[in-house]
C-alpha cells in the first residue's frame, strides 16, 4: 500500500513537470494567462473543498450505526423540519456558489477583453493546413510584412491578433499568454495578447484540422521594443544575393523548379503566396510549423521527403538529384 502511494506520488510529480515551461496554462507569462490561471486554481480549489464536504456528508450516515427506534413508523415532525432546513441551506449555498463562479468568469472575461483596447500593433494570423501565415499590418504599405509560423511581438505591449483561415477551422492557442480562439474561414476573430517579459512561448493549433494537426505549432517571440523594431526592419529587406556559387546554383534551381509556384522569396521573381514566405527562412527557429528544428540537415530532409516528415502536407515531393538538393539547401540556408 505504501509503495503504491509512493508510486502514485512519483507519477504525479512527473506529470506536474509538464505544468511549467514554454507551453503551459499553469505557468502564465502574460495578463490574460494569469487571469485564466487564477480562475483555474480558484475553481479547482473550491470544487475540491465542496467535493470533500459532500463525501464527508455521504460517508457519515453510511458509517454511522442507525438509531434504534421503538416506533419506526412514528412521525417525527421535528426531525423532518431539521432535515428540510439542511436541504434548503444546501440548495441556497449551491445556487450562491454557481452564481458567484459565473460572476467571477464574467469579470475575468472583461479583463481579457480590455487587454488590447489600446493595442498599437495589429497582426493578421491566417491558418492554413498546416501552417500559420503571419502578416504585420502597417499604415505604410511598404512596411507590411508577411512571414510564417513565428510571431515576434514587443514585450510588455498589448498586441491585437486578427485570426482567420483559408481552408478549415483552426484554433490559435499559446497557453502561456492567453486562451484559445478559433480561426474560421470567411470570418475574423480578434484576440489580444500581451507578454510581460521577453521570452519564447510555444503555441499549437487547438482544433483538429486534418492529418497534420499535431504538427501545426507556432512560436511567439517577445522581445524588447528596440530589438523588435530592428527585427521588423531586417525582415522587410529582400533576400540578399547568394553568397557562394553553390548557393547561386540553388537560386537558379529554386526559380526553375516547382518551388517557385507556391513560395515567395523577396527580391526574386518567386512570388507564390499559397505557401510560407521563405525570404528569411533561415532566421526562423523551426521548419514546417514547428515540425523540425532549423538546420542544414533538416532542410534537406524536409525538401527531399516532405511526405515522410509530415505525411499529407501540401508540400509535394519534388524530384531532385543529390547535387541539386545540396545547392537548394545551400541557397535557403543563406536566407537569414
Amino acid at each position: 500500500m505504501k509503495r503504491l502511494a509512493w508510486t502514485g506520488f512519483g507519477t504525479a510529480c512527473v506529470f506536474l513537470q509538464g505544468c511549467s515551461g514554454w507551453q503551459s496554462a499553469l505557468d502564465p507569462k502574460g495578463p490574460a494567462a494569469s487571469e485564466l490561471a487564477w480562475l483555474i486554481w480558484f475553481f479547482t480549489a473550491l470544487c475540491a473543498v465542496i467535493w470533500v464536504l459532500v463525501m464527508i456528508a455521504l460517508a457519515t450516515p453510511l458509517l454511522m450505526r442507525p438509531l434504534a427506534r421503538s416506533e419506526p413508523l412514528a412521525l417525527d415532525s421535528g426531525a423532518d423540519r431539521r432535515k428540510l432546513r439542511v436541504v434548503v441551506i444546501a440548495v441556497g449555498l449551491t445556487a450562491a456558489i454557481v452564481v458567484g463562479l459565473t460572476l467571477l468568469s464574467f469579470f475575468a472575461n472583461r479583463t481579457l477583453a480590455a487587454i488590447g483596447s489600446d493595442a498599437a500593433l495589429t497582426i493578421r494570423v491566417t491558418g492554413h493546413q498546416w501552417w500559420w501565415e503571419v502578416r504585420y499590418e502597417d499604415a505604410t504599405p511598404s512596411r507590411i510584412l508577411t512571414t510564417a509560423n513565428e510571431i515576434h511581438i514587443p514585450a510588455g505591449e498589448p498586441v491585437r491578433l486578427l485570426l482567420t483561415s483559408t481552408d478549415v477551422i483552426h484554433s490559435f492557442w499559446v497557453p502561456s499568454l492567453s486562451g484559445k480562439l478559433d480561426l474560421i474561414p470567411g470570418h475574423i476573430n480578434v484576440l489580444d495578447i500581451k507578454a510581460d517579459k521577453p521570452g519564447v512561448y510555444r503555441g499549437q493549433c487547438a482544433e483538429f484540422c486534418g492529418a497534420q494537426h499535431a504538427n501545426m505549432g507556432t512560436f511567439i517571440i517577445a522581445e524588447p521594443r528596440a530589438k523588435f523594431d530592428a527585427w521588423w526592419n531586417d525582415q522587410l529587406q529582400p533576400a540578399g544575393p547568394p553568397a557562394s556559387d553553390e548557393a547561386k546554383a540553388g537560386e537558379d534551381l529554386f526559380l526553375s523548379r516547382p518551388c517557385v509556384m507556391c513560395h515567395r522569396i523577396g527580391g526574386t521573381p518567386a512570388g507564390g503566396t499559397v505557401a510560407p514566405d521563405l525570404t528569411h527562412i533561415a532566421s526562423r527557429r523551426t521548419l514546417a510549423a514547428g515540425t523540425l528544428t532549423m538546420s542544414r540537415g533538416n532542410l534537406a530532409a524536409w525538401i527531399a521527403d516532405p511526405q515522410g516528415v509530415k505525411p499529407g502536407s501540401h508540400m509535394p515531393v519534388v524530384e531532385l538529384n543529390g547535387d541539386e538538393l545540396n545547392a537548394i539547401v545551400a541557397y535557403l540556408e543563406g536566407l537569414k
Partner: peptide, 8 residues
C-alpha cells in the same frame, strides 16, 4: 514542365 511535379 518542371514547374509542377508530374503527379500534381
Amino acid at each position: 514542365r518542371d514547374k509542377i511535379p508530374d503527379d500534381q
